[in-house]
Amino acid sequence: MSFWIVNTLNGLSLAMVLFVLSAGLTLVFGLMQIINMAHGSFYLLGGYIALSVIQASGSFIAGLVTACVAVMLLGAGIQRLMLQRLHKQELPQSLLTLGLLFIIADVAFWLWGGNAQLVPKPAMLEGAMTILGVGYPVYRVAIIGMGLFVAVLLWLLLERTRVGALVRAGMDDEEMVRAMGINIPLIFTGMFAFGAGLAALGGVLGGPLLGMFPGADFEVALLAFVVVTVGGLGSVRGAFLGSLLVGLVDNFGAAWFPQFSLFTVIVPMVIVLAIRPTGLAGRA
């Protein structure tokens, strides 16, 4: 019984980190058709910046806020100065972000070195609690809560605000939004920055669990791409469902078939896509 409880909770906490990460990826794709290869780099930078700020200040919150804001600004700069010039050119955009992936990886290696480092947990979330008679780390439970909180917040933003309506309209028919006199370039910049900030938040939340190391950017990006493909490109609900699937499958897969790690995630993806080519909640 405790096997099931622990692996389910592990799967859920990984799923929530993946969700925060993938939500940004899928929103950016849905609105701007950018396949952002550097999304994992924003995750890595978020984790590393938080690590340094927490080490210097001793405050997890300070690390979280600094990391998210810094990466958002970086994202805004990248979109304004580079991606905006390549509007609607999908291949050049992807290649550009691929280049950024390598550059950021090198810079991060130079600044933070090659050893794996855990982001320190907030002090108040240290230790374990008892769930259904099983001891379980408080921090992982807190991550599940944070992921659900972010999910609700994103839903409210998208479905209940004017900006959210503009973003959905832009996903449906960008040209028509422009014809209505709405400054879509500004919305694009804002969305790319927001997506980068979500990736950074994923890095900060996941940092104490998964650690930061050269190659972590690529590893999580791969999982995030599986998530948004399974969930359906452009759909936040899909990213949520996809994250649950990937998080749980990854944990139980690793427990049952440790020798096939990534394989156990790819197989469900292939099955889902064979049945529903647009993903679980894809836009047609």
């Binding site: 309506a165 959905r168 309209a169 449906d172 028919d173 422009r178 209505m180 006199g181 879509i184």
Partner: peptide
Amino acid sequence: AAHQRWVTGLALVPQGRRIFPSL
């Protein structure tokens, strides 16, 4: 740019309606 032209009082009813399905 297209998104600046509304300032002149211009609006469009496009061919094929082009409403936003998710709004």
